[in-house]
Amino acid sequence: MTIAGGIILIMLGAILTWAVEFDIAGLDINVVGVVLMLGGLVWLLFAIYRVRFARRAVAPTTTVVEEDPVTHRRVYQERPYDDPPVV
């Protein structure tokens, strides 16, 4: 689910609603366009929400595990991105 997918659905729905003059028996193109626009809007809002919280959850790759008070040496631990964040 990306932001571009929501925008594409909104654009497609707008084209079907206001630019297409075509009649199909039993199907209203204007209603299909409005449904696509609403679905695109929901998709867009969810994608923005997901991106907002995904950027906040990034953990650092290098953390200080312990520090020696006498020599002031720090021991670092390298972690891959798939490990949970150290709190």
Rank of each mutant, 00 (worst) to 15 (best):
T2R: 09
T2A: 05
A4N: 11
A4L: 10
A4Y: 12
G6S: 04
G6R: 06
I7L: 03
I7H: 01
I8Q: 05
I8T: 06
I8W: 09
I10H: 00
M11R: 07
L12N: 07
G13H: 02
G13A: 00
A14L: 13
I15T: 07
I15A: 03
I15K: 04
T17R: 15
A19K: 09
A19D: 13
A19P: 09
E21V: 03
E21M: 03
E21G: 07
F22Q: 11
F22R: 09
F22P: 11
D23C: 14
I24V: 08
I24D: 09
A25P: 13
A25N: 12
G26R: 03
G26E: 02
L27H: 10
I29L: 01
N30M: 05
N30S: 10
V31F: 02
V31Q: 11
V32E: 04
V32G: 07
G33V: 01
G33I: 02
V34N: 05
V34P: 03
V35D: 05
V35T: 06
L36P: 08
M37T: 07
M37D: 04
G39N: 01
G40A: 02
L41G: 13
L44D: 00
L44V: 01
L44Q: 02
L44N: 01
L45P: 07
F46M: 12
F46G: 04
A47E: 00
A47N: 00
Y49F: 12
R52W: 15
R52Y: 15
R52I: 08
R52D: 10
R52A: 13
R52P: 08
F53K: 03
A54L: 06
A57L: 04
A57D: 13
V58C: 10
V58G: 12
A59G: 12
A59L: 02
T61I: 07
T61G: 11
T62F: 09
T63V: 15
T63D: 14
T63P: 03
T63K: 06
V64W: 10
V64T: 14
V65D: 15
V65P: 14
V65R: 14
E66Y: 14
E67L: 09
E67P: 14
D68H: 01
D68F: 00
D68V: 01
P69T: 02
V70I: 05
R74F: 06
V75G: 03
V75Q: 11
V75P: 05
Y76W: 09
Q77H: 14
Q77K: 12
E78L: 08
E78S: 14
E78C: 11
E78A: 15
R79E: 04
P80H: 08
P80D: 04
Y81L: 11
D82G: 04
D82L: 07
D82Q: 12
D83M: 10
D83V: 11
D83F: 10
D83A: 14
V87I: 07
V87G: 14
V87S: 13
